[in-house]
Computed example of a mutant assay.
Amino acid sequence: MNQSHDQDQVPYTVSSKSPTAVAINAAAKTGEWIKTRLGNHKELNTKLSPQDLVTDVDKGAELMIRKLILTHFPDHEFLGEEGIQPGPEASAEALASYEDAEYLWIVDPIDGTTNFVQGFPGFCVSIALAHHGKVIVGVIYDPVRDELFVAEKGKGAYMHGNPTRVSGDKDLASSVMAIGFNPERDFALPLNMKGIEALATRTRSLRAVGSAALHLAYVAAGRMSGYYEVGLNSWDIAAGTLLVQESGGKVTDTKGNPYHLGVRHMLATNGLIHQELQQVIEQAGATGL
């Protein structure tokens, strides 16, 4: 195959690296740097609430990822958490501003900043690439456990090269569910607490890792059977949703509608418990919709 034909096939690249390879490289390099800063951040500020934290390491990590990606794909758009004002309205406006983007990278440099600040395992780098609004690449890297989760649309999902598959649990009673304590205290947290209360007596157990991205990676890997949370952002979940879908699972909003980049209130499951979970959240008045 001649060089000019290669260029016809991939007109948006300026290098021979695939978007997936670039995402893996960015996540791995940034994750390793983040780990070196564990317990050594210099700035600590709050965003949406006193519980919504950001550090100089979040900002440095996002800049690193941006440079690593845009070096290869300078024409692509980039949506990173640290470049957006806090709050659901700002998040929705930012996403809407990229509605016409052909290729959009959606990045959370540290998902689980509170865990990072506390020196508590449970934070990761999350990188997704959307093509005309559909996620086609998802990479999540946990530097503490050195676990790299990768998904490509239509090509499956893997953790260090081994295919991931969702769990086989057939009902909520036999399921371990991931839940979140959202930092948005006025709207999201009260609804999440309603859902958590309803699920506590219907499931085998509940887990809150403190990272939406890791929750989704763990659902994809079959470590948990589902995840419910109200009040999420696109950068929290874009990469993880593809991991779940490519591992045989199902992702919707809390009403059961198909996932899209604008979804903020989410259910992600192995598929087998999805309808039962949705009904419990609906009956609890905890959909947020």
Rank of each mutant, 00 (worst) to 15 (best):
S234G: 00
L267F: 05
R207T: 14
P190S: 06
D186K: 09
E32L: 10
A92F: 00
Q9A: 08
Y12I: 00
F149H: 08
S16V: 12
N192A: 02
T36D: 14
L261S: 09
T113A: 10
F120D: 13
Y98C: 04
G156L: 00
V230K: 10
A21S: 14
E89A: 09
M193Y: 00
L95H: 01
A151G: 05
P121D: 13
L148V: 02
G80I: 07
D100L: 03
S234L: 10
Q245T: 15
R223Y: 13
H76F: 10
A157M: 02
S49H: 04
I69C: 03
F116I: 06
L261H: 07
R66P: 03
P19C: 09
V137C: 11
V251S: 09
V219W: 02
P86S: 03
F116Q: 09
I65L: 02
L267Q: 12
M266F: 03
K42V: 14
E82I: 07
G288Y: 02
E246L: 10
H76C: 13
W235K: 15
F116N: 09
V57W: 06
N270S: 10
L70V: 01
L191E: 04
N182H: 09
G133P: 04
Y103D: 12
K17P: 01
V176C: 14
V150T: 04
L129T: 01
D146T: 05
P50N: 09
T114V: 12
L191Q: 08
E99V: 13
D171I: 05
L172T: 06
E81K: 14
Q9T: 05
H5M: 07
E32M: 14
